Amino acid sequence: MTELDPHPLRADMLLAMRRLARSVAVISCAHDGRRFSMSVTAVDSLSTEPPSLLICINRSASLHPPLDAGADFCVNVLSARHEGIAIDCSGRLKGEARFTTGDWQTSVHGVPYLRDAQASLVCAQDGRFEYGTHTVFIGRVKEVQTSGEIDPLVYVDGAYTTRGTPANCAAA
């Protein structure tokens, strides 16, 4: 933090958040005959009664308008082998080109999902609210598919990685 920085708290928060390791997911949806996707780490469970998730999407993201229009969505939890898809969906590719890598299918609810994701949770929108630069969308889980071993793609300190060896919690 310096006196020259007009937003020291923002800069400090960004530095702190680099230390928060998060699983990487791709949010996908369809709207008006087009598919949309975006890599995210701002996903979390909300409730098990009813089964629901929340996702946080910047209002400037290309995924925001279809979600804002009410499109249902899928949270595709990526495995370590999906790093290329994460990069494609975070800006390397645009629009429909983001669906050229990976085995994308369409759910019975009409939502695109990644067939071999660690988990794909198809959600119907069930509420939302705006906060700062983002909208928090609540999704009621309608369909769940899991695949393969648990081997998450993780994002920490500005880079993709995989899970490390679990910490030894035994007393020394």
Rank of each mutant, 00 (worst) to 15 (best):
V77L: 15
I55Q: 02
L15A: 15
V136K: 00
N76P: 04
T135L: 06
S62K: 09
L54I: 14
A16I: 08
V43P: 03
A71H: 10
V141A: 10
P51M: 12
I138V: 15
R22F: 07
T135W: 06
L121D: 06
E3K: 11
G70I: 09
S79I: 00
D88Q: 06
I138K: 04
R115C: 00
S62Q: 10
K94P: 00
T146K: 03
P6I: 05
S62C: 02
V43R: 03
G70L: 11
P166T: 08
R140S: 10
F129Q: 07
L9I: 11
T41P: 03
S39V: 02
E96G: 02
A69M: 02
F36I: 01
E83T: 05
R140I: 01
V108T: 08
G158D: 12
P51Y: 09
D103R: 06
A86S: 11
I57W: 09
I150T: 13
D12T: 12
I57A: 04
G164H: 13
F137E: 07
S79F: 07
A159H: 13
S79P: 01
P6A: 11
G33T: 07
K94W: 07
P8I: 10
S37Y: 07
C123E: 15
L54A: 02
S23D: 03
L14P: 00
A21Y: 04
T135G: 05
R59N: 04
S60F: 10
T162N: 08
D157A: 15
H109C: 00
R34A: 12
K142F: 00
R81Y: 05
M17V: 13
P6W: 06
Y131T: 15
Y131M: 13
G158L: 10
P51C: 08
T146D: 07
A167P: 00
A69Y: 02
A30M: 02
I57P: 04
L53G: 02
L121I: 12
R35P: 00
G127W: 03
L114W: 02
T165Q: 10
R35G: 01
E83H: 02
D12S: 13
T161F: 04
F137Q: 06
L121S: 04
K94R: 14
L14M: 11
L9A: 14
A16V: 11
R81P: 02
R81S: 14
V136A: 03
I150Y: 10
G110A: 10
S90I: 04
G33K: 15
R59F: 06
